[in-house]
Simulated scan of single mutants.
Amino acid sequence: MDFIERLTDRINQIPNLPLTCKKGYIGAEESFVVYPLPGSQVIRKFMDGVSDQQLNYEIAMKSKSQAKIHQSLWLVQDELEKLEELESNNKSFEFQELLITNKPFINQLDDQGWFVFLLDIQATVTVFNTKEE
């Protein structure tokens, strides 16, 4: 399923973001990433193997500029709250909805001056029973 890739692509279409969002985890330097969180689950499973799923993701940004992070994550949050369509490139899922479960919040400030802010989302998608070859 290519949901996280399409989500990352959609975030990168938002104008005026200072960094490119990548799939993965926060690095040692300035970072802007999206990754899955625990707690995702199948809501409903159908006889043909298709399922409705709730998927939990976190968008994280690390920078020494608290203002840059704050502005960026609020832009992302505003755009994702309005998201009505997200299309799979390989027809592995159909987008239903996306909810912001935690608005941008500070998670960390280390002794070297790096701030980490997080934004949590939950997406509901229908996942099709596709076999990748």
Rank of each mutant, 00 (worst) to 15 (best):
D2Y: 12
D2W: 12
D2P: 08
L7K: 09
T8N: 14
D9P: 03
R10D: 06
I11V: 13
I11T: 04
N12L: 10
N12E: 10
Q13E: 14
I14R: 04
I14N: 02
I14K: 06
P15E: 10
N16S: 13
N16A: 10
N16G: 00
P18A: 01
L19I: 05
T20R: 13
K22G: 10
G24V: 05
G24L: 03
Y25L: 09
I26V: 14
I26L: 13
A28K: 15
E30C: 00
S31A: 07
F32R: 07
V33D: 06
Y35R: 07
P38T: 07
G39D: 02
Q41D: 13
Q41L: 12
V42M: 08
R44W: 09
R44S: 15
K45V: 08
F46H: 14
M47T: 13
D48R: 07
G49P: 02
G49Q: 05
V50F: 05
V50H: 11
S51A: 15
D52S: 12
Q53E: 15
L55K: 06
N56M: 03
E58N: 09
A60M: 06
A60H: 02
A60E: 07
K64Y: 03
K64M: 08
K64T: 13
S65V: 02
A67W: 07
K68P: 01
K68T: 13
I69Q: 04
I69L: 11
Q71C: 01
S72P: 04
S72R: 00
L73V: 02
W74C: 02
L75I: 01
L75K: 14
V76L: 02
V76W: 04
Q77G: 04
D78G: 02
L83R: 00
L83S: 00
L86M: 03
N89C: 08
N89K: 14
K91C: 03
K91F: 11
K91T: 03
F93N: 03
E94K: 11
F95V: 01
L99G: 01
L99C: 05
N102D: 14
K103Q: 09
I106V: 07
I106G: 12
Q108H: 10
Q108P: 00
L109C: 04
L109S: 11
D110C: 08
D111W: 03
F115R: 08
F115G: 02
V116M: 10
V116P: 06
F117M: 15
I121Q: 09
A123F: 07
T124W: 08
T124F: 09
T126P: 08
T126Q: 15
V127I: 15
K131H: 10
E133F: 07
